[in-house]
């Protein structure tokens, strides 16, 4: 099932349980985002685009995968919008689009032998698409 337009936004709102209508466009989320420079679309744009009913570009962009899930945006949002949950919803929608969603990290990253198991498990959850 391909989700687009208003239907996509409705799905994002359902999954995230985020009240995007509360966003007052202050941008404190983006100002707090440690991955701002890596992202094509920033946390405040996630909120804005989802509330405007046209967020297809967010599904096509890889911005959601630049997020470190540090939750700072949601913590500091004065309106309780929780942009991090919107980002997570996009990751989830993408993963659910296909039955064989997967994540294959480069072999080289394991070379140092020190990587904690938790990192791999987290990456599987966050990067599967």
């Amino acid at each position: 099932m391909e989700c687009k337009g208003e239907a996509l936004c409705a799905e994002v709102i359902r999954i995230s349980a985020s009240d995007v209508g509360k966003c007052m466009r202050c941008g404190k989320c983006s100002a707090s985002c440690p991955s701002y420079d890596e992202m094509e679309y920033h946390p405040h744009e996630f909120a804005y685009m989802v509330s405007s009913g046209d967020a297809d570009a967010l599904l096509e962009s890889d911005s959601a995968y630049k997020c470190v899930s540090c939750l700072t945006c949601s913590e500091r949002c004065p309106c309780g919008v929780a942009p991090s949950r919107l980002v997570e919803a996009f990751r989830i929608i993408k993963a659910r689009e296909r039955s064989n969603a997967a994540f294959a990290p480069e072999r080289s990253v394991f070379d140092d032998g020190e990587i904690p198991g938790q990192a791999l498990v987290s990456a599987f959850r966050k990067f599967s698409k």
């Binding site: 991955s35 890596e38 630049k66 470190v68 990253v109």
Partner: peptide, 12 residues
């Protein structure tokens, strides 16, 4: 502030 978490797999 965040240490980078799991993103070193893709954004070292």
């Amino acid at each position: 502030e965040c240490c980078g978490a799991y993103t070193f797999f893709e954004e070292k």
